[in-house]
Structures are given as C-alpha cells and as structure tokens.
C-alpha cells in the first residue's frame, strides 16, 4: 500500500502515538492505562508505519529483534518479582522507593510494579508486532 496520505499521516502519527503509549504506560498506575494498552498502542503505531511504507522500514525503526523483545519483556516482568524475595516477601510483591531528585519538590516514586508493567508493555508490543509483521511479510 503506497498511499501518500497514509505515509504523511504516519510520519506525524508515529512519534505522537509512541509518546502517548509511553505516557499511558507510566501513568497507568494512577489513571486508566498501563502496559497492556500502552503496548497495543505502540504496536499500532508501528503497524501503521509498516502499512504506509513496508515492514522493512518499520523493523529498521525498531532496531530490536521482536522475539528478543518478547523475551526481554518476560524477563523484566519476572525479575521485578525477585526484589520482594530479598526482603522476605512473596514473589512479585510490589516494593516502592522514594527517590529525591534535584529540581523537584516531591521525591520521585519508583516501584517494582512499574518495572513489571514495562515488561508487560514490551511483551505485548513484541507479540503483536511479530504477528502483524510475519503476516505482512508473507503477504508481500
């Protein structure tokens, strides 16, 4: 599909959608959103790119092997669960730390569930894109 409209739209939409997906991912703990939605959104951004141009360009933009991304996501999610073991809690229990950062009044809160959600994000993104790209390449 070599539609000029699609290509132009994709150029603008891709960064926007990606940014939005990251915001949804990180804000998901407090507002609607999270790793699943974020990952799906990011996947649709790359799917758009692949449809407007071709799979090769979308893959170049990603720079990462998709199945490796799935593996990375799963590993992150699992590893986030091991932190709680160090303080004697059950596996995957959430831990939170307050980290003061220069220039902000409130300390930044970092927790293992965020790490877990990033794992979800990467896994979903990798899985969905594997499916779409594989199909598209076969069709092409």
């Amino acid at each position: 599909m070599n539609s000029l409209v699609l290509q132009t739209a994709s150029r603008f939409l891709l960064p926007l959608l990606l940014l939005l997906s990251v915001v949804i991912l990180l804000r998901g703990h407090n507002t609607p959103g999270g790793g699943f939605v974020g990952g799906l959104l990011a996947a649709s951004a790359f799917a758009l790119q692949a449809m407007a141009f071709d799979v090769e360009s979308a893959r170049r933009m990603l720079r990462v092997n998709l199945l490796a991304m799935v593996g990375l996501g799963l590993t992150l999610a699992l590893v986030s669960g091991f932190f709680s073991l160090s303080v004697g809690g059950p596996l995957l229990k959430g831990l939170w730390f307050e980290v003061p950062v220069l220039g902000f009044d409130d300390p930044i809160k970092i927790g293992t569930p965020v790490l877990f959600d990033i794992g979800v994000y990467l896994t979903v993104l990798g899985v969905v894109l594997t499916m779409i790209f594989t199909l598209q390449e076969v069709v092409e």
Partner: peptide
C-alpha cells in the same frame, strides 16, 4: 490509584 492496573501488576 488505578485499581484495575494494580490488580494486574501487583
């Protein structure tokens, strides 16, 4: 604050 997300990730 998002209960659905907390259920999923915690």
């Amino acid at each position: 604050r998002n209960l659905v997300n907390i259920i999923l990730v915690d």
